[in-house]
Design a protein around this nucleic acid. Structure first.
Lengths: 343, 343
DNA sequence: GTGAAAGCGCTAACAC
DNA sequence: GTGTTAGCGCTTTCAC
């Protein structure tokens, strides 16, 4: 396995032209005559030459790489988003340098330093948190950051989310109108803005309509912890007749637990509402009523925002909140005469 | 957002040392006195200097990047594997440049060229196919390729899979012993070695035990196509009493279809067996009997194989097949007196 | 142990 | 349009 790198110099010598001529032939904007182009491309093909992107990056200052930081792929919403994001960026000529991290911000800082070391032109943070210190570094390095499905307090940072507050509000209204008496909440990780906003909207609407929150547990976005939370909540003497769960992934865990551990029926005994509208939510076994997060639009807004900031360093940061509809299926009792437009 | 790059030269001037001294301080193996190290690190921290990995790569020939090509993240097995692979490579100081592709090999060739342009040190192909032409280019470029969950005909290429033939065989034996009379198969994409091997083992064992294959359809690893396949198979006058489905993702699609479209019970009316043992398979709603693909071991073998070939260019390619157990749950009738060891 | 100098493979002025 | 020249930011001889 001899690493026999073919350089532009090799092509140049063999074609009897200058090295920079070869460079021009492979540079989209540069000027080269048809004959030159033909001759060089021919020799390049023979030798199997392709420009070294790293060397190019060094000089242009454009690596054409985007750093993607993602915390966990367990929740189907993320693989789906990662796939779409990756394809969209490829479409634009960018490539994704991917980093996994844990939800807690232990090693995020280190990971981000590494990303910057690779001279990425932009960073997408999906379900991960970033310290003040780091955001400052990114700013100084001129590397724009877009948060996907998370807000940061810092308005100087771009963030693309669904309208989580309004989503939570919709769920509360829907459940109250469904005549539920004991409405509970199982929360995701409280460090996430997504969770805080959904709960804020949800509880705000309950309060507004003078309905107390019957019970509350935390599932931390994990299947096991969520089932444990459900076992505590439904192991009590009086149990909720409706639960708003912080996302679909947890909502499904709750449904599994209620049906199989407690023999409860959904929605006859308990109504369940989730958030995200992942693929699984539509499976007939679950038919989960949920708020849709429009991942297509979230991804395209992310790409637009990021590329805009990359290309135009004076571009201002954006906080985009995309409204998502309540998708009514069978996991929650439907209010009489309910019209979707009501929301 | 001024892109104010801090170079080793800046640090050198401010610290009053040579540029190469700064380089040495940041090069793991190089020799620098404690005082020098302290002085340089101090100034570097003040300036926020970090070495430019791209420039380093250009000279060392080591980009510390691994290309990962993945076809679809819909099947939970892959996000799980990608997460593990990414973490394992990060552990070893490598980073993942990720490319999404379509299952058909339309644009894989182009994507691979782009990967090579980025000077990746190795490539992991997960659920994607690679043309002869490209494998040759990778060989010439000295970039080792490891196939994950796919074999290639070319023995010069490394491949890590589970023992799919034996897995298929186990399923057939299990179903026959369960007293099933009409055993069918719903296949994944026939272009995948994984599919061919599983079916080969499955049909081979049926034949050996003189049991005919009752019916066969193709689901192409997609939810929709699989449900369509199931509708055809179960829309006939006589239907199977057992189906081996090409992977869990499809098996779950079949279960949903049987239960909700046909009102059939699993396993009382039809036994279902899948392949992979994804997280979902263990959910009580499905309790899917399946062959486990040990993703942890598959990932670690992938990393070992790849890094070994990177570090030692004379390292020979490996084809690793990891045996996975039959995980017996409730989706398929269990033979009387069945002992796991039998397999 | 440290500095000077060369050069990784390429792009981008600059003359012609 | 094309060749010449000068670097991008770094590692790596090579003297000292």
């Amino acid at each position: 396995m001899a690493r026999e790198t073919v350089t532009s110099q090799h092509v140049a010598s063999k074609a009897g032209v200058s090295q920079s001529a070869v460079s021009r032939v492979f540079s989209p904007g540069a000027s080269a005559s048809p004959e030159m182009t033909a001759k060089v491309k021919k020799v390049a093909a023979e030798l199997g030459y392709r420009p070294n992107v790293l060397a190019r990056s060094l000089i242009t200052g454009k690596s054409k790489m985007i750093g993607l930081v993602v915390a966990y792929l367990e929740n189907q919403f993320y693989p789906d988003a990662v796939e779409k994001l990756s394809l969209a960026l490829q479409e634009e000529g960018y490539h994704v340098l991917m980093f996994m991290t844990k939800m807690t911000n232990d090693n995020v800082d280190q990971i981000l330093e590494e990303l910057l070391d690779y001279q990425v032109e932009g960073i997408v943070m999906a379900s991960a948190f970033m310290s003040e210190n780091l955001t400052e570094r990114c700013r100084r390095a001129g590397v724009p950051v877009v948060f996907f499905n998370r807000r940061q307090a810092d308005r100087a940072l771009s963030a693309i989310t669904s309208d989580n507050i309004n989503g939570g509000r919709k769920v509360a209204d829907f459940l109250i109108n469904g005549g539920h008496q004991r409405i509970a909440h199982i929360a995701g990780w409280e460090g996430a803005s997504t969770q805080r906003d959904r709960e804020k909207g949800f509880c705000g609407e309950l309060e507004k309509q003078n309905v107390p929150l019957f019970d509350r547990e935390v599932g931390n976005y994990h299947y096991e912890s969520t089932q444990q939370a459900a076992r505590i909540m439904f192991g009590k003497k009086t149990i909720p007749d409706a639960v708003f769960v912080g996302n679909d992934h947890m909502a499904l865990a709750v449904m599994e637990c209620l049906r199989h551990d407690f023999g409860l029926r959904v929605p006859e005994d308990v109504s369940i509402v989730g958030y995200d509208d992942v693929e699984l939510a539509s499976w007939p076994s679950f038919a989960l009523t949920t708020i849709r997060q429009p991942s297509n639009r979230m991804v395209s807004e992310t790409v637009i925002t990021l590329l805009n900031q990359i290309k135009n360093s004076t571009a201002v940061s954006r906080q985009v909140e995309i409204d998502g509809p309540l998708v009514i299926r069978r996991s929650a009792r439907i209010p009489r005469g309910w019209k979707d437009e009501k929301l």
